[in-house]
């Protein structure tokens, strides 16, 4: 097995509505849909954002689009009209998701082309 970062395999985009954040996660190569489905679970994403204490994390899978939509409740400190922080929209937060390490089979083409990989 080889470890790559999620950002080697996928794109992410944040959006907000009030105190709710959504992050679209789009596989760059649709062939990675199942490996990402298996590893980027609701529990794992809740872990990434634990310091923001999400009250609910839901993942919607969109196989036609080779994408996922994550919805995280109550992670924006009240949202753009209430947060004291600089990013009340949560626009920067998609890049936290992309920092998740992903295990790939050693024969996956991305396993040798990823920017940050190591054999484990």
């Amino acid at each position: 097995m080889t470890t790559v970062m999620l950002r080697d395999l996928a794109n992410a985009r944040s959006g907000d509505k009030g105190n709710r954040l959504n992050i679209a996660l789009v596989c760059r190569d649709p062939a990675h849909f199942s490996v990402i489905a298996a590893q980027v679970t609701e529990a794992r994403v809740a872990d990434v954002f634990a310091s923001r204490h999400p009250t609910r994390v839901v993942r919607y899978a969109l196989p036609n689009l080779a994408a996922f939509n994550f919805v995280l409740d109550d992670v924006l400190e009240g949202g753009v009209n209430a947060s004291l922080g600089l990013d009340g929209h949560g626009k920067s937060l998609s890049f936290l998701l992309l920092d998740i390490p992903i295990q790939l089979e050693a024969d996956d083409p991305r396993a040798t082309r990823g920017t940050q990989h190591q054999t484990v």
Partner: peptide, 28 residues
């Protein structure tokens, strides 16, 4: 695809005043 899912919650039920949009069968 990034924009299709921008500010979406349940992709099967995007509520608009004229229709409820279901994105789950959309192809690109």
């Amino acid at each position: 695809v990034e924009q299709i899912l921008y500010e979406i919650h349940d992709p099967a039920a995007y509520l608009a005043p004229d229709v409820v949009l279901d994105l789950t069968a959309v192809t690109v």
